[in-house]
């Protein structure tokens, strides 16, 4: 673990920055297991096993006087001249933590940046450092593992923040300060321009996604707009799509001067269609257009006069989305 590489400026990553933002206290473990110096090495071994730790500060009369680790334990066992288990046990039973600990251990302050801790691990290659406050009290212990965990937690938090920034429902509107406000988008749809049929709704969808609306809202607006656009292309001899965006609702209107709808109630029946074969061959005209628009919107009104044209108005509310 290194805080900087050969070229510190070039390699100053987000991670490096984090190591300067995070304090040692945020990466340390506060529940420190300490041992008294009078403990035998045998008892110390049991402490390590019971707590699944690999080292502990040695505390006497409330004051940290040293640190002892599993490596000291191994050295103690290895130093026995006779390698029989009886000889090892004898040494473990008769020698104390005080004899094998490292006195006056290197420490870190709780308010130091994490980068200092990482440097110290690099330089001294120790497994752990006791953490003290400016008054000298033992407040925690830090290991490479706890550093990695703290960094991962911060990266996760930063990542979540970015996600929220991408999808804050209505975030766009919160930045607008006005008593009244509406944004109107208008698209012209050409009759029987099949190659570009749907392009207006495609542009609308893209625009709405820039406004940071809820993805489900965007999908509903896009689908109703697309179905309405197809109706303009197939039936309406072209026309306009007008979308009005307000903080609480999105209104979508289409106006055409096409043949109009004779029987609106019949046209609203799912499956009812008067589409000719060429419309069906494009995957439309199955009688789902208007029912689909209705299913995607909260309100829908159609006014149509045969021979004059059709006016469709739909509303999607932005509250209670999802």
């Amino acid at each position: 673990m290194k805080t900087q590489d050969q070229d510190p400026v070039q390699n100053f990553t987000k991670l490096t920055e984090l190591t300067y933002v995070i304090q040692v206290s945020e990466a340390m473990n506060q529940d420190v297991i300490t041992v008294p110096p009078t403990l035998t090495m045998c008892e110390f071994r049991e402490v390590l096993r019971a707590h699944s730790i690999s080292g502990a500060p040695v505390v006497e009369n409330g004051k940290m006087i040293g640190i002892i680790s599993i490596e000291d334990l191994i050295k103690t066992m290895g130093a026995c001249e006779a390698s029989s288990s009886q000889a090892v046990n004898a040494v473990m039973d008769t020698t104390s933590v005080r004899e094998h600990m490292t006195p006056d251990p290197e420490t870190l302050y709780n308010d130091e940046p994490l980068a200092n801790a990482i440097n110290k691990f690099d330089k001294l290659n120790f497994g752990r450092f006791p953490v003290i406050n400016r008054q000298g009290d033992l407040v925690g212990i830090i290991t490479k593992g706890s550093i990695v965990q703290a960094l991962l937690e911060h990266i996760h938090a930063a990542y979540s923040e970015i996600e929220v920034l991408n999808y804050p429902t209505g975030y766009f509107f919160e930045d607008i300060e006005a008593d009244q406000f509406n944004l109107t988008l208008q698209y012209q749809v050409n009759a029987e321009d099949f190659d570009n049929a749907g392009e207006a709704s495609s542009q609308l969808k893209k625009t709405l996604s820039h406004l940071c609306l809820h993805p489900q809202i965007i999908r509903r607006v896009a689908i109703s707009s697309y179905e309405a656009e197809m109706n303009l292309v197939f039936w309406g001899k072209g026309g306009q799509i007008r979308v009005e965006i307000q903080p609480h609702q999105i209104t979508l209107e289409t106006v055409d001067t096409g043949p109009g709808i004779e029987d609106i109630e019949q046209a609203m029946q799912p499956g009812y269609s008067s589409a000719p074969e060429w419309v069906r061959s494009m995957g439309f005209g199955a009688g789902m257009g208007l029912p689909n628009i209705q299913a995607c919107t909260d309100e829908m009104e159609i006014e149509s006069t045969p021979g004059e044209g059709t006016h469709l108005k739909t509303t999607i509310y932005l509250e209670n989305s999802e």
Binding site: I223, E227, G283, A286, M288, N292
Partner: peptide, 9 residues
């Protein structure tokens, strides 16, 4: 599906 409205719905 071959019906695009069904895909949308």
């Amino acid at each position: 599906s071959d019906l695009m409205s069904d895909v949308l719905a």
